[in-house]
Computed example of a mutant assay.
Amino acid sequence: MSAHDTDHGHHDGAHGTMGSYMIGFGLSVILTAIPFWLVMTKVIANPQVTAFIIMGFAVVQIVVHMIYFLHMNTRSEGGWSMMALMFTLVLVVITLSGSTWVMYHLNHNMMPAMEDQVEGQMPGQMDHQMNGPMNGMTHDMSRMQ
């Protein structure tokens, strides 16, 4: 058995070093910690802006994973890796924008009548209405005593 028989199809493509894996790991941790911090501390008051920022960090993290862990670049495999990267980015944009669109419309269209009622009320009035029949029963019971 020669050395070429035991190669298992590995070509001269880029293989990661310990340093490149550590850079990728560090970037991944940072790109996870920043969105977590944004959500937990509510730095940005508008939830939609926060969601778009988090999606931006997600796209950047996908690229970091593809470069540092999957070793995709323009030189390896005759440029097909870059085509795969572009295809992945297109799919991510379609998925994220479609998910955002669906979630927005689900939130907006699920209970439009309830939303109109809630907007015109004070915070204490909602509790009174939520207890509707039970509130009337306790009021009637207090009359009996």
Rank of each mutant, 00 (worst) to 15 (best):
A33P: 00
S20L: 04
M110A: 10
A3L: 15
M114I: 11
I67T: 10
T6V: 13
M141H: 01
T138I: 07
H108N: 10
H65T: 10
Q121H: 13
M22T: 07
S28T: 15
F57T: 02
G132V: 01
H128R: 12
T17K: 04
M1H: 08
M72D: 09
T88P: 03
A14I: 09
H4G: 04
L27C: 15
N131K: 14
Q117F: 06
T6W: 12
G98I: 01
S76N: 00
H139G: 01
N73Q: 01
M141A: 09
I30K: 06
T32Q: 06
V90L: 15
S142C: 00
L31K: 05
T32Y: 12
W80K: 09
N135D: 15
I67W: 08
L91G: 11
N109H: 10
D7L: 14
A33K: 02
F69M: 07
V63W: 09
A45S: 13
G56M: 05
I34V: 14
M86V: 15
Q61M: 14
D5M: 14
I23A: 12
D116F: 01
H15L: 01
E115N: 05
N109D: 13
R143C: 04
I53Y: 05
G26R: 09
V90Q: 04
N109K: 05
G26T: 14
M130E: 11
E77P: 00
Q125D: 12
E119A: 12
M122Q: 08
L85P: 03
D5A: 10
Y21A: 03
S76H: 02
M66L: 13
F25D: 01
Y21K: 09
S76G: 00
A45D: 15
S2D: 09
T17V: 00
N131G: 02
N73I: 01
F69G: 01
V59W: 12
P112F: 02
N109W: 11
